[in-house]
Simulated assay, not measured.
Amino acid sequence: MSFASPLLRRPGAVAASRADAGVAAHYGDPSREQRALAEGSAAVDLSFRGVVTVAGPDRLTWLTTLSSQQVSGLVPGQSAELLLLSIQGRIEYDARIVDDGERAWLLVEAAEAEGLAAWLNSMRFMLRVEVADVSDDWGVLGATRRLEALSAVPGAGPVWEDPWPRIAPGGYSYAPVPEEVHPGLDRPWFEHLVPADRLEEAAAALDADGLGLAGSMAAEALRIAAWRPRMGFETDDKAIPHELDLLRTAVHLSKGCYKGQETVARVHNLGHPPRRLVMLQLDGSAHTLPAVGSPVFQAADDGGEKQVGRVTSAALHYEMGPIALAVVKRSTDPRVTLVVRGEAEGEEYAASQEIIVAPDAGQVVHRPAGLLRGHP
């Protein structure tokens, strides 16, 4: 799908690239836009999102049987997150879901939509469900609060509310901080569906309500600061939910059987995830950011260094400065300062760690109660 948002015609718009291609990275002032987005006085165009709908009376029970999440009881307007896993428990699709009473709306990364719709159609059998990839027909506007101005846009769709970082029913936290002080609480997040041919009308409604537009760079910085993993960034072909703290919002540990459940249960109850997600506070003296994929090193016992992971996302936060998410080996010492090595010769960043997934996460059978906690 080749997409270019009509909001790219707005004054100052600079196009984003890669996964965010088709929308504005910023509109001329990234720092101001980020602050406005955080404060709830701006919205961000996320219309690169893929949108897949599932209609029919069996839709929610069917999605429950296929996925890691219990969504059969979703009421109209209620939001959740679900994963579709491989037999080995690796993440294949990560979908935001909201139901409107007639159909379930699945919001995914652009690269996921076509494959997700095709796979769901292959699993229909005799059930009363209808699957459609409607990505071309819908735009998405994100904000840190519900935007009532968009409800007046003709044909406006439902609003997805991010459950992160609340521990969903049946979920479990691998973070070493209590839920009530999780940094994700500083970033409530809503994604509003609007018809693609009414995006300019939606932006005008925001203007009239005193709200501006922010670019995708602003949304990314707030996401990283909230420790929120993103499909295609923090995930690779080996990623399992435990490594990213996705048992918190996207996995129901006591629901019925689904593909990948055996791995999810085994790692959670008896083992440890082999890798873990961390946030890195980067040395800002270089005035640059490491590229996604940049290697992360830890000092070795022999006086050298060993690679322990890679940067998965990086941004310049309007308050914290340069920050990044990285996936590192579980054995990485959480107390030491790491080194990120960029692409240019001599490009290095000292990086202190904020633990997102605890090094001892998992193996909950017979372990004493501690900071890692679940939701019944």
Rank of each mutant, 00 (worst) to 15 (best):
D360I: 01
V308P: 07
S79R: 09
L8I: 08
G142K: 02
L247S: 06
E112D: 15
H252I: 04
E161G: 04
E161D: 14
V194S: 01
L199W: 03
G155V: 12
E112K: 08
P273S: 03
S151E: 15
G370S: 11
V153I: 15
A113R: 02
P295L: 09
P376C: 08
V327S: 03
P11N: 10
E161M: 12
H317D: 14
V296D: 05
H192G: 09
P6Q: 10
A113C: 09
A314C: 08
G171A: 01
S5I: 10
Y258W: 09
V327Q: 03
D302K: 12
P241N: 06
L253A: 02
G89S: 12
P273G: 05
A265I: 13
A55D: 14
S313F: 04
A118R: 14
E130H: 14
W62V: 03
R128A: 15
W227G: 00
A113M: 05
L150I: 10
N269Q: 13
E234L: 08
C257E: 08
M217N: 12
G28A: 00
L325Q: 13
L82P: 09
G184S: 02
A226I: 05
G101R: 03
L63C: 05
G232W: 00
F233D: 05
G210I: 06
A149M: 15
G284D: 13
Q307D: 05
L222A: 02
T263M: 14
V75D: 13
A13G: 06
H287Q: 15
D186R: 15
A152Q: 14
E114K: 12
T144A: 04
S173L: 06
W138N: 02
R128I: 12
E130R: 13
W62A: 00
M123C: 14
H366I: 06
E112I: 00
E234Y: 08
W105T: 02
P368R: 09
P334E: 07
G170A: 06
P176Y: 09
T312S: 15
D99C: 01
T263H: 11
G157L: 07
V292N: 11
R275V: 02
S173R: 06
D302E: 10
F190N: 02
H268T: 05
R310V: 15
L325F: 11
A219V: 07
D137R: 13
A4D: 12
A324G: 06
Q69V: 08
Q78Y: 05
V357A: 02
G157W: 07
G73W: 09
L325Y: 02
S135W: 05
V296C: 08
V44N: 00
A351S: 01
D360F: 04
S313H: 10
G342K: 00
S41M: 11
G28P: 00
M1W: 11
L244V: 11
R166H: 13
P334C: 06
Q363S: 15
A350F: 10
V23Q: 04
G260T: 05
A300I: 06
V194Y: 00
G346H: 14
V44G: 01
N269A: 13
A314T: 06
A314L: 05
D162N: 14
V336A: 10
Q353P: 03
A204M: 07
W189C: 02
E220D: 14
V264H: 08
P165L: 10
F3L: 13
G232D: 00
V71T: 03
E109T: 11
G101W: 09
L116Y: 01
V296G: 04
D237P: 00
V23C: 13
